[in-house]
């Protein structure tokens, strides 16, 4: 995929995430396509590119939240770095790919939960159980569905034979 195609894919993923993702939300839980994209790019292009993608998409997301600017950049940059460190230049098996996506999305969800939720133990546990863990799991399920779809190799940047 050349850079322009990747850029368009990134923009499309962001627009899908902010506009249509509610159509597949379950009890307010929605998957995070952006983290899936950032980690996939990090695996393909390396951790530095992962950080750059994470920062770029994160800042766009931050502008839409009306909340803390800088939180999305922090979370997605770290996920991009993690994805690159764990996946770039390595033999990429399906299990490895799915594990990296799971770890990256868990990192993003935990950062958001940590920064956005007030610190009281009972409330935190409820948020973790009703929002954070289902969100991570849902993202992972979507990754799995995407991965086994005919378009799976577009996002991962590898041919189907390599995965």
């Amino acid at each position: 995929m050349n850079q322009l195609k990747v850029l368009c894919a990134g923009a499309l993923i962001l627009l899908l995430q902010i506009t249509l993702i509610d159509l597949i939300s379950i009890h307010g839980i929605k998957p995070d396509l952006v983290v899936l994209f950032v980690i996939s790019r990090a695996i393909t292009e390396g951790p530095t590119a992962g950080v750059a993608w994470g920062f770029g998409l994160g800042i766009l997301i931050d502008t839409l939240t009306g909340g803390i600017t800088g939180l999305g950049t922090l979370a997605y940059s770290m996920a991009g770095f993690l994805g690159g460190r764990l996946g770039f230049g390595k033999v990429l098996t399906r299990t490895r790919y799915l594990t990296i996506i799971f770890s990256g999305s868990a990192l993003v969800y935990f950062i958001f939960t940590y920064f956005l939720q007030p610190w009281d133990a009972a409330g935190w546990m409820t948020i973790l159980l009703t929002n954070t863990f289902p969100g991570i799991f849902y993202t992972w399920i979507i990754t799995l569905v995407w991965f086994y779809s005919p378009f799976g190799h577009f996002l991962s940047g590898r041919s189907r034979g390599q995965l």
């Binding site: 952006v34 939240t65 956005l116 939720q117 929002n131």
Partner: peptide
């Protein structure tokens, strides 16, 4: 658009 970040609902 809706907010994509988990925990912020806007």
């Amino acid at each position: 658009a809706t907010n994509p970040i988990s925990g912020v609902r806007s």
